[in-house]
Design a protein around this nucleic acid. Sequence first.
DNA 1: CCGGGGGGTGAGCGGTCGCTTAGGGTACGG
DNA 2: CCGTACCCTAAGCGACCGCTCACCCCCCGG
Lengths: 204, 204
Amino acid sequence: MGVEQSEQWAEITPDAARRLVIAAVAAFAERGYHATTTRDIAGRAGMSPAALYIHYRTKEELLYRISGVGHRLALEILRRESGRDGTPAERLAAAVRAFVRWHAEHHTTARVVQYELQALGEEHYAEIVGLRRETDATVRGIIEDGVAAGDFAVPDVPGTTLAVISLCIDVARWFNSEGKRTPDEVGELYADLALRMVGYAAGR
Amino acid sequence: MGVEQSEQWAEITPDAARRLVIAAVAAFAERGYHATTTRDIAGRAGMSPAALYIHYRTKEELLYRISGVGHRLALEILRRESGRDGTPAERLAAAVRAFVRWHAEHHTTARVVQYELQALGEEHYAEIVGLRRETDATVRGIIEDGVAAGDFAVPDVPGTTLAVISLCIDVARWFNSEGKRTPDEVGELYADLALRMVGYAAGR
DNA sequence: CCGGGGGGTGAGCGGTCGCTTAGGGTACGG
DNA sequence: CCGTACCCTAAGCGACCGCTCACCCCCCGG
């Protein structure tokens, strides 16, 4: 898992900066942004407290970088799956499956990305909110397609979109890698639940 | 809303202790436990920083009291609704409707209750986790009843239970009292979504 | 062999944190 | 009228925070 976890941070260079990001994700996910000290982050990365400031101007900038990379990764997954050929039901299932699998597999990153947003500065926060709106629009697009095709029965499209995304995001909060469910299993279960939520009747 | 909000804290006496709890809930919900200072809480309650320690031994004890009252209130609502007479579908809809309405109406309290748990000390945390397990058991009981009666079609009961509760809880994160949805509307929407998730076919 | 620059460290600064302490104001029983 | 029990405050203690600074080491071109 260590190698796999570091691959998602491949775009962060040099090596020391990437080690700091990985250490920060672990610390933020475990205790939260405000309860984490810069000394703790540097210590986990095997450096002195001062080394952090060679690569990042502030602790908040570290969170911003993590949040940006994480949101872009999640959005990319969602767009790739929702853009495939297929019926709206197939596209919704694929999107939810992949989105949930990412939130489970990278639940430490996802926890930081989804639940520590409020600690961002005003400008950085506004930028991230823009990415979140795109996530919302992507899911809503699939559901609208399904309604237009007569495959889905959804009385409240924006509300149901919100609920589906909310359900997926919350996986990051409760998922435990030592639990008995694998990311694949949770993704499969949630894809089915999402289809049920939009009133898709399988096999009919 | 002020009066209504303070009513849920009626069991906290004397008055000064209750004002501190209300101030702490507002501050914790807005910035999180670790980003809130005891000076901020006391200031919101119209007292000096030292006054907090007349009524609570530590800042963590304040969180513990809030968490305890909130969890007990939410569990009480869930049990009352799930214990009514009626079909499993009616009971599930009523439970979800009321549980979600509480999370929306008291979304500041609910946010603290649901998302600041990790800041509790070890013993207090363990106690609260016990209450959460009872919440889980209550919802699972309804779903099992529905499956036994042949009204619900649920391949994975524990997983679906977890998803339904997760969906309800996450309302506290995104709900905004200045948004366009009322707590009643969200409760209604979510009751319908929960029935869909358990494979209940209305009117058939 | 030397000079310079980028990544690193030890020590520590100013500020703020959770919490404590000494004492003041007020209502009330005797 | 006094004692006293209860809330409360002003001031501040020790610890720890985010962040900085002076300096060091090591690699590399000339």
